[in-house]
Design a protein around this nucleic acid. Structure first.
Length: 135
RNA sequence: GCGGAAGGCUGGACGGCCGCUUUCUCUCCUUGGAGAGCGAGAGGAAAGUCCGGACUCGCUGAAGCAUCGGUGCCGGGUAACGCCCGGGCAGGGUAACCUGACGGAGAGCGCCACAGAAAUGAAACCGCCCCUUCUUCGGAUGGGGUAAGGGUGAAACGGUGGGGUAAGAGCCCACCGGGGGGCUGGCAACAGACCCCGCAUGGCAAGCCCCACCGGGAGCAAUGCCAAAUAGGGACCGCGCGCCCGCCUGAUUCCCUUUCGGGUUUUCCCGGGUCGGAAUAUCGGGGCAGGGGGGCUUCACCCCGAGUGGUCCGGGUUGGCAGCUUGAGCCAUGUGGCAACGCAUGGCCCAGAGGAAUGGCCGUCCAAGGCGCCCGGGAGACCGGCGCCGGGACAGAAUCCGGCUUACAGGCCUUCCGCGCGU
RNA sequence: UGGGGUGUAGCCAAGUGGUAAGGCACCGGUUUUUGGUACCGCGCACCGUAGGUUCGAAUCCUACCACCCCAG
C-alpha cells in the first residue's frame, strides 16, 4: 500500500508525456479497412498496418487492435490483444507520428509466446519501415 | 494393503514495477470534464444455447374450440421445468452400486423387405396317420385327420416332461409362463397369498394415432426517453365518399313575431337586430351502419369513419441515458422432513464492461513429473532427505436467475463394497 | 446476443425404414497416325461423430462436432 503511493508519483511524468500524444482507439470498421489498403509491415509476432490520414479527419495518433478466429478461442484472442495493447502503449507515444492510423493484428501462437522485449523491438523496426515507405 | 463404488470441496500462493474500468469522498474549473484518495473488479463450468422462468412489447385482451408442439411408471419438492429427491418395476454387476423416452398394441389405420407353405384371426410344402380304388406289390389316385418332426426367418397362435392316440393335439396331468376376479398391505406406482380360466389374439406407437397433463408469439439488438440532422414530402393509378338526428340559441336558407333606420303610397320595398318555427343540398357536430385489427366463434377493446390502398421516386440517423444489476441473492444459527427442500431469526451487499475493462512484465515459493546423489531406513517392493531440470488444466461475464449437457492438469475430504493378511 | 439451416465418392448431388441412383472428374479399353470427340467398362461411400429404438437406420430419437445464413 505504501509502495503503491510512491510509484504513482514516479508514474506521473510518464503520464504527462503520453498526454502530449494521446492514443485514440480505432472502433469503426471503415478505419480498419482503410488501414489495410495502405502500407503493411509483417513481424514474427504480429502484422502492422498503417496509413497517414487525410487532413481534417482526426487529430493525434490512433491505433486499433484485432485478432481473427484463427488465433484461437476467446481467451487466446484476448491475451493476444492485451499484449499488443501493451507494446503499443510503451512504444507509440514516442515513435508514433500524429496524423497516422496504426492497426496491430495478432497471429496464432506467436503473439502470445514471443519474448516481450523482442516484440517491442519488432514494433520499432516495423514503424520505421512503414514511415520510410510512405515518403 | 490391493482393487473398486458413491458423494462433496478446491481450481496455485506471496511480492515488485507499469497500466485498464468503476462506487464513494474531496479538489479544480464554465455545462461537462480533469485530478487525488480509500475501496471493488470473471467461472465451476462465465462455454454449448438444450429446457424452464423473471422482465418488456396495443405483437389487441378474456373465454371456448381447432391446429401445432412438448412431456409420459408413482408420490413429493419447486416460481417453473424435459430438473431434483424418494419409492416401484425391468436389466447389468460377486457386491457397494449403476442404467432405463418405463402410459396404451383384446380403440382404429399402417408396415413387417429377403427367405419361407404360411407374416395375423395365416394356413399345410416335405411329412405322419386312417379309409377307398388300382397294383407290375416298389407304390400310385381320390377323400379325410393332424400340427409332433424337417426346413425358412428377427419373429410361426405358450414352454418342458409325462400320459394319451391310428397319428397327433391343453385332449388330460405336473411345473413354469399368461389372462381374469375379488381380498390384504400401500396415498399411489406396485407387491403378496388365494380362487377361477387349458389359455388363438405376434412385433413396431423414437409410424400415424388414442389417453392424461402442459404450453399464445417475439425477444434487452426487447422496450422507454433525450439530443442532433434532414424531411414537414412528391408523382401516378385504382376503389370510395352510405343512413339518421337538428343538437351548442353552430352555419346557411326559408317562413313568421316584434322593433329600428331609410325609400315612400298607412298595408309595400330595402337593410340591421330580435322571439319562435321549419329544412339539411353544402360547411361543422353527434350517433348508427360499414370497413380494418387473431387460425375461428362470442364478448370486450382499439383504429378508420372521408379518405384509403397499391406502385415508383426522394431525404435523414449508426450518438447519449435508462433498462443494468437487491436477487426465486449469499452467510451463520435454530427447526420440520428419510431426502430434494421448506420455515424462522440475525448479519452482509458481492463485477457491471459496452468494438467490449478485470491485465503486461519480472522475482521467490509450492504441488505433479524426470534425472542424479546420500546409498539413510528396509529382506524386498518401496519410503525419506538433498540438488538440478521442468512446469499449473478446461476456459473469459454481455439483461438476470433455476437446471441440463459438454470440456477439465491435478489435489483434498467423507462414506461404502470385494479380496488378502493380522488380532 | 438471439433466430434459422446444412453435412452422402475428389466435386455436384438423388435417396422419408429393407442391396446408397445419376452426372462430372479419375483409371483401363475400342475407334484415331497422335490428341480431342464418341462408345464400352472398372473402381471410388465406416452416409459429420457417438449412443439409442428396431429383426434391420443415410432415413426415426437424443447428445455432441463442423460449417453457412439472417437480425439494429
Amino acid at each position: 500500500m505504501a509502495g503503491r503511493g510512491s510509484t504513482n508519483e514516479k508514474a506521473a511524468p510518464v503520464k504527462s508525456e503520453a498526454a502530449l500524444l494521446p492514443l485514440q482507439v480505432l472502433q469503426k470498421r471503415s478505419d480498419f479497412l482503410k488501414a489495410a489498403r495502405a502500407g503493411r509491415a509483417p513481424c514474427p509476432a504480429f502484422l502492422l498496418q498503417a496509413r497517414q490520414r487525410r487532413a481534417g479527419e482526426a487529430d493525434g495518433v490512433r491505433v486499433g487492435f484485432t485478432c481473427s478466429k484463427k488465433v484461437g478461442n476467446a481467451v487466446a484472442r484476448n491475451r493476444a490483444k492485451r499484449r499488443l495493447r501493451e507494446i503499443a502503449r510503451l512504444v507509440l507515444p514516442t515513435l508514433g507520428k500524429p496524423g497516422w492510423d496504426y492497426v496491430l493484428i495478432g497471429r496464432a501462437d506467436h503473439t502470445a509466446t514471443r519474448d516481450f522485449h523482442s516484440m517491442q523491438e519488432d514494433l520499432r523496426h516495423a514503424l520505421a519501415r512503414v514511415h520510410a515507405a510512405r515518403k
